[in-house]
Design a protein around this nucleic acid. Structure first.
Lengths: 219, 219
DNA sequence: GTGTATATCTCGGGG
DNA sequence: CCCCGAGGTATACAC
């Protein structure tokens, strides 16, 4: 990784055009070629950047970075205050726990917590417009399409509605029901779901994990 | 801005939990206190981070960053290879051109390019569920609600549909039409729009800018 | 502060 | 390659 501290101005022309007036900033060039220009504040997002793959040309006081799509980043260096490189090697990568996929796994294994007698048909049930998180059958044998979110907002209800509309266009699934599951469901999402006949269920991630580990302990 | 190159491992506990095994990485601490941990690859997003406001405590070989929400980042330093600080001052900031707001402005001033005889009623027409980008009246005097996007995808059609449903619930607006405008409209969005009786129009940003500057030159 | 929409979103997975 | 969905999304803006 190369780190350059420089008084510079920057222009980007691509999906939009953007300009940065002259100031001291950090220019970060990573091993994969991606370039990011950071100010000394403002969260983790750089002011300007160019992702890999790209081509970096170091000219006389001016760097030009172009990518295959024709987007271009021009860095004009007025004064270089520091320029250093560091070997880092390949990063072993980040492991995460607690994202939607885990919630979905836990629910798939514990459909009974969502409704009495609910049983799993399959996870990631495929449709032409994307996968339904969980396809289940209720105690009466009716299909239930379930959308799982960490946070239940309007977008999720829209998504489930699209699936339901598509599924119901198949006569064999004309009576498929909808269920919206999240750790917290916002009132607006709940209201929209209600107008569309979609059942809302809030679940507790830690509680589910508890059930899971209890079962593991028993068997 | 402080830049530390160190062999470190990192743990985050907050909205999820995440762990980074030991490796050499860049730790960036900005003047506003935000912390970001970068690997030598993978675009501009850091592996882990903690936005301002937060509290950074440098212990013995271990940094702890906590924010008011109780999220916590723990950086264990196994070996510090470099540690430098740089004065940068306040950044003058980025100016952008070509985002949705500009497209909306241009269209508001040139509604005639969308349809013959179309005239603007108002921009950002307010509703209970958010603002309609452009409210217009067509040559026959009927209201037309217009959603403007840089790229026309399904989400935008859904958004416009929500507005139309709400607006039409008011008897005075029962016949409001829908129009979806973007520089490029994807086939899926176009199909969905068609099933909902929404007109799709693709516009050319550069051409609109040309019209605008021509008009400025004439007057 | 909540709600809504935007973003050069980024990033990953599947066809 | 595109499409689709998730994100510790972040960020701005209006009510």
């Amino acid at each position: 990784m190369r780190l350059v501290i420089a008084r510079c101005s920057v222009d980007y022309a691509g999906r939009l055009t953007a300009h940065l007036p002259e100031a001291v900033r950090l220019i970060m060039v990573k091993a994969d070629g991606c370039v990011a220009i950071h100010a000394d504040g403002g969260a983790y997002k750089p002011l300007n950047w160019m992702n890999a793959p790209n081509r970096l040309v170091e000219g006389d006081g001016e760097w030009t970075v172009v990518n295959p799509k024709g987007e271009q980043l021009t860095i004009t260096l007025h004064e270089v205050l520091s320029d250093s490189s560091h070997e880092m090697g390949v990063d072993p990568g980040l492991s995460k726990d607690g994202v939607e996929a885990h919630l979905q796994e836990l629910l798939a294994a514990n459909t009974g917590t969502l409704a009495e007698g609910l049983s799993l048909v399959r996870r990631e049930y495929p449709t032409d417009i994307g996968p339904v998180d969980l396809m289940c059958r209720d105690a009466d044998g009716r299909l239930v399409a379930i959308e799982v979110k960490r946070r239940g907002e309007i977008d999720g209800v829209e998504q489930l509605t699209r699936y339901l509309t598509l599924l119901r266009s198949d006569p064999a699934m004309a009576d498929v029901q909808g269920m919206f599951v999240a750790q917290v469901i916002k009132p607006q999402a709940r209201t929209l779901a209600a107008t569309r006949g979609i059942t809302c269920v809030e679940v507790d991630y830690d509680e589910l994990r508890g059930i899971e580990s209890n079962e593991l302990r028993l068997f």
